[in-house]
Write a protein that binds this DNA or RNA. Structure first.
Length: 303
DNA sequence: AATCTGATCAACCGCCCCCTC
DNA sequence: GGAGGGGGCGGTTGATCAGAT
């Protein structure tokens, strides 16, 4: 049972040295603090929430003696102080989930965040703007355009899938588990599409199919840390990149031209590299921290 | 070593929706 | 029904840091 938030104390009067034009407004908000939060403010907010619970943020701020707006308190709590906030880099699983959900819902950050426990909408939004949108700019594409979505599906998503596999095969017992809603992921349409796209374009530019790397050949005993992938990627004993009914063999010797044709018919295969007015350095240079974006094979054909 | 540049992310802003009165 | 306030959301800004020059 949370205590009731006490009535807001009277505002202290204060003097201002120069007020002139916006004097009245200054008096109203002049005491409000802005900018980075101090440790003391954080402590006050945490204690106040522990006592009164979340919600009624304006009252909470005043009850805590914080010279912050309710909105500011809410944001600080939700984006930073809340105990279950996950910090650190997004895992490949999380990145994959973000890309997929964004293609589904667009900039509905909070909705996307709801499927990534511990991650905030702000964090996801920042990720999208700093990492993903940057790639769109460098490709001279609109980040919401179909061609860029295709590019994501063709190159980036398969990479993430591969990373997930690599992670799991290198630490098959550890649960790097994405705790995202597996039912959501399993309903996502990307799986066969993106692999086919990757194959399609890789083939057209003469590079080896990326996903046909040995990581697809994993032992039967291995299980995916990602439940949704378990029934797709981890159909292991066939040495294939199996995708349930729409199974697609990524081994280049088993290249499925019919699958390509179907993708082509769906209108996605018109993404040709020549449409991507991108400089090699753009893809390779400034995202070196995350080699997922390092798409060497994209450029093989130019050599 | 100093300066520049770009990346990152916390925080703010403005709009909108919903609820209450 | 509509006015007002609280809260949520997406967009944007600005401080800081790291790497490049």
């Amino acid at each position: 049972m949370k205590a009731a938030i006490p009535a807001a104390p009277e505002k202290e009067s204060h003097s201002k040295e120069e007020g002139q034009e916006e004097e009245e407004e200054e008096e109203e908000v002049g005491e409000l603090r802005r900018g980075p939060w101090t440790l003391e403010e954080d402590t006050l907010l945490i204690h106040s929430i522990a006592r009164y619970g979340e919600g009624r943020w304006n009252s909470l701020a005043e009850a805590a003696g914080l010279k912050r707006t309710g909105k500011s308190c809410r944001l600080r709590w939700l984006n930073y102080l809340k105990p279950d906030i996950k910090r650190g880099n997004l895992t490949p699983q999380e990145q994959l989930m973000i890309l997929e959900l964004h293609s589904k819902w667009g900039n509905r950050w909070s909705k996307i965040a709801a499927h990534l426990p511990g991650r905030t909408d702000n964090e996801i939004k920042n990720y999208w703007r700093t990492r993903v949108q940057k790639q769109a700019r460098q490709l001279n594409m609109e980040s919401n355009s179909q061609s860029f979505i295709d590019a994501i599906r063709c190159f980036y998503m398969p990479r993430l899938v591969q990373k997930i596999e690599q992670n799991s095969s290198s630490s098959s017992s550890s649960s790097t588990a994405i705790d995202a809603d597996s039912s959501t992921f399993s309903s996502l349409p990307h799986k066969s599409i993106m692999i086919n796209h990757a194959e399609n374009i890789s083939n057209s530019i003469g590079s080896p199919p990326r996903i046909s790397s040995p990581v697809a050949n994993i032992s039967e005993s291995q299980t995916s840390p990602y439940p949704a992938l378990q029934e797709t990627v981890y159909n292991s004993n066939k040495q294939e990149f199996s995708l349930r009914d729409d199974c697609y063999y990524v081994d280049s010797s088993d290249y499925d031209m019919e699958a390509l044709a179907s993708i082509s018919a769906a209108g996605a295969s018109d993404l040709l590299l020549s449409d991507c007015h991108v400089a090699r350095s753009n893809w390779l240079g400034d995202v070196s921290a995350d080699d997922t974006w390092n798409l060497d094979e994209l450029w093989q054909f130019r050599k």
